[in-house]
Design a protein around this nucleic acid. Structure first.
Ligand SMILES: [Mn+2]
Ligand SMILES: [Mn+2]
Ligand SMILES: [Mn+2]
Ligand SMILES: [Mn+2]
Lengths: 231, 231
DNA sequence: TAAAAAAGTTTGAGTACTCAAAGTATTAAA
DNA sequence: TTTAATACTTTGAGTACTCAAACTTTTTTA
């Protein structure tokens, strides 16, 4: 069994590989994500590579092997099921669930995980809209566009939030920008570099393009155009 | 914050001190409970004593200080609330709950613990009938007698089981000897060294005195005599 | 009471991390 | 194209455990 330290490295690696479409993750990036110095990351990555969970290319970066990916997805499944469980069953605040799950993900047994999964009705997404990998280690993340890409007058529904920090999540919650919330884009002038989005039954919220890009939505169709089919 | 290693030492120390009425716990005993060699226990105990959580008397043993006791009770509270939670909410088997809780007790936050406590309705005993320490660090364990002490013909109710091993718990469960079960003592001849107890609606179970002593009951009044008042 | 057994302690070494600081390779700037 | 900045790696050392084996003290047995 992988130690909790290694589980954290693998999970961050998987998450980062999603961002940078399969490219080698640079050491500095990984070190920052895990919260250690670059030297520590280098040492650990070499050990991880030796156990066959990743491929290490000196001075280029690291990439998970198939085995490493599977293990990472197992950890991610535990993390996301736990987040949902904490929010739905225990009533823990949305913004705190991530931090709690970060610890619990390493000590929950398969038995307990299976009961949680059952109790939640085999859910497919966590409280932030992130997909929950199956127990067989599969995830399907549909292509989504963000609030930043929608034109003035569009109506859409938020499905996923791409930031786990409790400050951002608290802001999102008080603004009403939560998964399943219907939203109208009141203004999106590319020149302004900011948009105004109004969640159903709430006052409009002003967002920078950076902030708006963190809210993934569906459907993507904008006011003037119909969107082409996507997988 | 105490590491999970130290939390385990403290908890075992507290549990053992209950058995041996406050006497110093010998190193060998502690080592066996924690599952390390005597040398390791000696080293760790010296460190624990240095941080003020225990008093170490070389070649005599260890004893918790007030601070150590409080910390131990906090761990025990987490352990027992978790056991009940695992059984009641997640439907984990009675015999497995202890092992699961052994890991979880070190990573649950105060926030999550408070929610579990609330969800369970501030319970006072765990699934084995062990009392749950209050958040202020108080436990009251009423004086109880065991099945072994009852005379032939006595009727009583099981309230607590003094063995956490999953084999013993499975045996207890299939026999019907669980907390809250009503039991009649069919035979208890001191010369035989074994008793026969019949749980309500179940066939009688033969128990050695050692096994019978693990089932704590109330009331203690036997067939022929009335029991004197106890605190 | 001396020898043997048991219980406890110390020492030396190993694992699994971690960091700071020094050294090396790669990339960007001048 | 030399120089400087950046990224990465290596080295040496520290923490928090752990064990095996040697040693010491206490208790038992003869
Ligand atoms: Mn984690
Ligand atoms: Mn999440
Ligand atoms: Mn434990
Ligand atoms: Mn218990």
């Amino acid at each position: 069994m992988a130690s909790r330290t290694i589980e954290n490295y693998l999970k961050q690696l998987w998450l980062q590989q999603q961002e940078s479409r399969g490219k080698y993750v640079p050491m500095g990036k990984l070190a920052a994500l895990v919260g250690v110095t670059a030297g520590t990351a280098t040492t650990m990555v070499k050990a991880i590579a030796d156990s066959g969970l990743a491929k290490y290319a000196p001075r280029a970066g690291v990439r998970l092997t198939r085995a490493g990916e599977q293990l990472a997805l197992h950890v991610l499944r535990r993390h996301r099921l736990l987040e949902l469980f904490l929010v739905e069953i225990l009533g823990i605040d949305w913004s705190e669930a991530h931090g709690e799950a970060e610890e619990l993900e390493h000590v929950i047994s398969e038995t307990v995980l299976a009961r949680i999964d059952l109790l939640l009705g085999h859910p497919s997404v966590d409280p932030h809209g992130d997909p929950i990998p199956s127990s067989a280690g599969k995830v399907e993340a549909p292509e989504l566009c963000s609030l930043a890409e929608l034109q003035t007058g569009s109506r859409t529904v938020i499905v996923r939030i791409m930031d786990q920090s409790s400050e951002f999540l608290r802001f999102a919650q008080t603004s009403g920008l939560v998964p399943k919330a219907a939203v109208v884009i009141e203004h999106n002038n590319p020149q302004a570099g900011a948009i105004s989005a109004r969640p159903d039954g709430k006052p409009p919220v002003i967002l920078s393009m950076t902030a708006a890009a963190k809210f993934l939505v569906r459907p993507c169709a904008t006011a003037g155009q119909r969107r082409r089919k996507s997988s």
